[in-house]
Amino acid sequence: MKTSTAWLMLLSAGALDVLWAISMKLAQGYTRAGWTAVSLMALGAFVWLLGRALTVLPVGSAYAVWTGIGAAGTALLGAAFFTETLSPLRVAGIVLIVGGVVALRAATPG
């Protein structure tokens, strides 16, 4: 697998991590069948994509990028869909996470 493909799989895994977190909330403790199914499918898909990406990418960078995408994306969508607050401190934290993800990607060969 090419490194660029592995990075694309990793970014997709990060997006699915966000979908998993949001759908898990919407599943309301796994009591809503439709959202439960979405949550479990997203979970399976992101684990598979992450595992494939890790066959090529360094685990330290890849895992940190994946969790950063999940953390920042979930915080932003939580504010958008669930009226969670986006205080200046939370926004600063998200900016720092995104900056860290960009720095790790830039520092990783390939």
Rank of each mutant, 00 (worst) to 15 (best):
F46C: 13
L77V: 14
L54K: 00
G70I: 05
A6I: 06
G99W: 02
A71H: 04
I22Q: 01
L96R: 03
G14D: 06
L11K: 00
T67R: 11
G100R: 09
W66N: 13
A72F: 06
A33P: 11
L50F: 13
A79V: 07
A71Q: 12
L50W: 02
S39H: 03
I94W: 05
A72W: 06
S23N: 08
S87D: 02
L104K: 08
L76G: 08
A6R: 02
A62S: 11
F81Q: 04
V18Y: 00
T74S: 15
M1N: 01
L86C: 03
T3F: 04
L76C: 12
G34I: 09
T67L: 13
V101D: 02
W20D: 00
A80T: 07
L8S: 14
A15R: 01
T85W: 00
G100L: 10
V98G: 12
T55W: 00
L86Q: 06
M41T: 14
V102H: 01
A106C: 13
T85M: 13
R32Y: 07
S23M: 14
A27V: 00
F82C: 08
I94E: 02
A53M: 04
L40F: 11
V59N: 09
L96K: 01
A33G: 12
G44F: 09
A6C: 12
M1V: 09
R90T: 14
Y63H: 02
A45W: 04
L40W: 05
G110D: 06
P88M: 08
G70N: 04
Y30C: 02
A15M: 11
A80C: 10
F81H: 01
A62H: 02
K2E: 11
V38D: 08
T74R: 07
A37T: 09
T85K: 14
L86V: 02
P109V: 13
L86I: 04
V18F: 02
V65D: 08
A37Q: 05
V102T: 09
R32D: 11
T83P: 02
L50I: 00
